[in-house]
Design a protein around this nucleic acid. Structure first.
Lengths: 242, 242
DNA sequence: GAATAATTGAAATACCCATTTGAATCGAGC
DNA sequence: GCTCGATTCAAATGGGTATTTCAATTATTC
């Protein structure tokens, strides 16, 4: 009777189907921008299922966060696969590679980074702060320690802080641009010429889509970052002990 | 009769009062996050006034954008007040100063930059693209030309692009962090310890709030940026003509 | 100072959304 | 094959929002 629901039953459980769609929609359109109804529609599931399996929209969202965080940590560790024993510059390169992968992976930022960006520009609920904080804190303090190591003991805290920020924060800018481009690409009414020229994010996307472009970007960022660190070190040496 | 409406009449016109409140709320909470009702409440104005003076919420929003863009252009020109005749490094410093002022001005990012960030992470309507584009394009292409000048003719387009992005895009990351901190500060239920440690944006805000911290940040960014450009130039020289 | 247009006010309308409800259906264990 | 708990379904509820409506009020013009 009724439609042959081949998309149901043992294959993938309702709960999992909801999660799969939710992670996609929440990361692209944010918490407020995605309705339970739209999730259920795409997952071929009744709206009540969401409130049955997860108590509320917010709890579903939290679950999505936890899954995205786990997934990112597994597939893309902070160290970029570089051993602890490698040179500082090697390790820096690994960290930068990992960050870029998260926030500008050619086709789209990772789900986690998109969630982070939405949460930063439009916080959902204090309950999310905890998990969001965990997602940001670990890579940030790891980077800070590495910068401290590279700048040496004579560097002031402010120098370490600014230098760390100089590496860490720009990727949020990259992610924001990428996310904007990604959304624009997926807009249903995108006729491609409503705005005459390209936004910085689109120019960048084009560049890294080219053969070798992505590696070139990582090279460029690593090179300029190392040069920046070197410049700060020179200043420290010139100044001597504070 | 009724309350002595001292907040009305010739003083400031209804339309202007709406705009004043709208620019504040839209920039902090975004388009979707602010209701017409909340604007009218704060402006001591009836909801119908919005739809009388501006046809719709969207048109009010567009008006706010135009005003914010105008205001920013007047009070904070791209060149940071540095003359065309100054050295390239001086002009770069001016541009960086201007960008930082827009996106991380100690107390809060400017209205325009907050609008931009919201629009990037959660686009409102194609009608906004035009004005948003104008807000981003001018400083971006100015920066690009300056970078081209500093890198010389032998630099590839990709080198110019990446270097420009390396200066231009990070400020979006800064702005995103600042906006997040700013919103958190202004949340009504902010007990200050729902999350134990500080987010990068908060650490940074603390640092630039200190005496001389803001200038130190601009110094740091300028120094590392110049060092980065110098590194790219060296690569170009080493490589010779492509 | 009357007539007319502009503006404001309070309430109504229409839509979207999260959540609830209670019946229907399914599935495992006996 | 029956029972009971788990799951799914369609419809209803309640709260929020943008927008409209039209009468009341204010300002402007002659």
């Amino acid at each position: 009777m009724s439609p042959p629901n081949a998309s149901k039953s043992p294959e993938i459980h309702t709960k999992q189907r909801i999660l799969n769609v939710a992670i996609e929609l929440f990361s692209v359109k944010g918490y407020r921008g995605t309705s339970i109804a739209s999730i259920c529609e795409q997952a071929h599931v009744n709206v009540a299922a969401v409130n049955y399996h997860f108590h509320s929209k917010l709890e579903l969202y939290l679950q999505v966060w936890r899954i995205a965080l786990e997934h990112e940590t597994e597939t893309n560790p902070f160290d970029g696969g570089i051993a602890e024993t490698a040179s500082a510059e090697e390790r820096l390169r690994g960290r930068i590679r990992s960050l870029i992968h998260r926030f500008v992976w050619p086709n789209a930022p990772s789900e986690l980074s998109m969630l982070i960006i939405h949460e930063l520009s439009d916080p959902t609920d204090p309950a999310v702060d905890e998990v969001r904080f965990n997602a940001i804190r670990a890579p940030h303090s790891a980077m800070r320690e590495l910068v401290r190591e590279m700048l040496g003991d004579q560097a002031t805290d402010q120098e370490v802080l600014f230098t760390t920020m100089g590496i860490f924060i720009p990727v949020f800018g990259l992610g924001l641009q990428q996310q904007s481009v990604y959304r624009r690409d997926h807009q249903p009414n995108n006729d491609g010429n409503s705005v005459r020229n390209k936004l910085p994010g689109e120019i960048l996307r084009d560049a890294i889509s080219q053969e070798g472009g992505f590696e070139a970007l990582i090279d460029h960022i690593t090179t300029t970052t190392v040069a920046g660190i070197e410049a700060v070190r020179k200043n420290i040496k010139k100044r001597g002990n504070p």
